[in-house]
């Protein structure tokens, strides 16, 4: 049994398997299928300062080996999270991380401060890359100045672990990662969804209410691996990898490319037990290759 413990900044995870925001609700939706305490951590869905109703239906379209969504950050706001959700999940023996989104720097900072008052929340994953909301952070995530601005503001308001989630919808994701690092991020996670669209040819209409949406699932994995590989070489802070991970082998590929931890997203919709199966599979891989710890394979791609 290899050691699965991994570190993101000051945060120690019992294993490197996290859930991707927006694919795992508040965790409790999955508690009938898996033991949540077996997760390295779970990232609860995108939370904003004020409640958001999100975008109109239809919000989802299946595409080859993946899906598009334009949910648009539907959530009940950070105060609801603190008062009504947090009390029910704070004692789950896993690392609780809140994904934070916003439309202004001030909103981000104010919500971050409130998240900081929830003792058992150990980190923020800062979403500066949602492709489905006009001011859903995407504007911040596509320029280095924007990244620095919002990351610096949240850094001042929040002193626990800060992970910045990056968009692949940029010319150079490495530049964005370096900007996040310079502004005080403890880690970067990548990739958020790739912007795409789908069309119903018979009806000559888009399949999504917002026309465009974020693409996820195994179809994005090669892009995600490439991004993790490039960013991990460029930054000194740990990289959290995600994008189309369906099983332990996919996860191992991300570690080899340089990820310190991984997130499982869309796979939760296909098999709600994916996360724990990946934990077991990573263990099996490490044992089979005689590695004593997950840290031994991080960035160990032989090129």
């Amino acid at each position: 049994m290899a050691k699965l413990e991994t570190k993101i900044g000051g945060l120690t995870l019992k294993n490197p398997v996290l859930t991707a925001s927006g694919t795992f609700g508040y965790g409790t939706e999955f508690s009938e299928f898996i033991d949540l305490s077996r997760l390295g951590g779970y990232i609860i869905k995108g939370t904003t300062l004020n409640p958001r109703e999100g975008n109109p239906y239809p919000r989802m379209a299946e595409t080859p080996s993946g899906m598009l969504n334009c949910v648009g950050l539907q959530n009940k706001g950070v105060h609801y999270l603190k008062d009504h959700i947090y009390p029910n999940i704070k004692d789950i023996d896993s690392c609780l991380i809140v994904n934070l989104s916003g439309s202004t720097v001030e909103d981000y900072a104010e919500a971050a401060e409130i998240i900081g008052t929830m003792d058992k929340v150990q980190a923020i994953e800062l979403n500066i890359s949602c492709p489905n909301v006009k001011q859903g952070g995407m504007a911040f995530g596509t320029t280095t100045q924007g990244v620095e601005q919002v990351v610096s503001a949240v850094r001042k308001a929040y002193n626990k672990t800060l992970i910045v989630k990056l968009s692949p919808n940029v010319t150079s994701i490495t530049d964005m990662a370096l900007a996040a690092e310079a502004a005080g991020a403890d880690s970067v996670s990548l990739i958020n969804t790739l912007m795409g669209m789908a069309i119903d040819a018979e009806r000559r209409k888009p399949l999504l209410s917002m026309v465009t949406g974020g693409l996820s699932g195994p179809c994005v994995k090669p892009v995600a691996l490439r991004c993790v590989w490039q960013v991990a070489k460029a930054v000194k802070i740990p990289v959290v990898g995600l994008g189309g991970i369906m099983n332990a082998t996919d996860a191992i590929e991300f570690f080899l490319a340089g990820a310190t931890a991984i997130e499982i997203g869309t796979a939760n919709f296909i098999d709600p037990e994916t996360t724990v199966k990946v934990v077991d599979g990573i263990n099996e891989y490490l044992d089979r290759h005689n590695f004593k710890s997950i840290t031994e394979i991080i960035g160990q791609l032989e090129v």
């Binding site: 927006g22 239906y57 919000r59 989802m60 939760n268 919709f269």
Partner: peptide, 20 residues
């Protein structure tokens, strides 16, 4: 409605209620 997870996690299958 078209849905993905079936568990209330992905929020893809929503319908608007009478309170908006």
């Amino acid at each position: 409605n078209k849905m993905a997870c079936g568990l209330g996690a992905c929020l893809c299958c929503v319908t608007e209620d009478n309170k908006g």
